[in-house]
Amino acid sequence: MYDCENCVRRLDQLVDKELSGPEVEEVHLHLGACGDCTRRYRFQEGLKRLIRVSGSERAPDALRERLREQLKA
């Protein structure tokens, strides 16, 4: 039977969508029965999302123009 330790060990891969179908099913089976792991999972997902949206700078227009010239040459 799947326990919390097993589940926590796979949370990185779960939030990164790196588990196979059957593995995802297994983890979710545990998550469905374990509130603590579920909250931990949502928290980790939230953190990953936060990291993704935090740095959303766009390249300066001048750089874009320079590169367009460079790539045309």
Partner: peptide
């Protein structure tokens, strides 16, 4: 290639 500029710059 230019389409990936923002990602590369970040």
């Amino acid at each position: 290639a230019i389409g990936h500029l923002d990602a590369l710059y970040r």
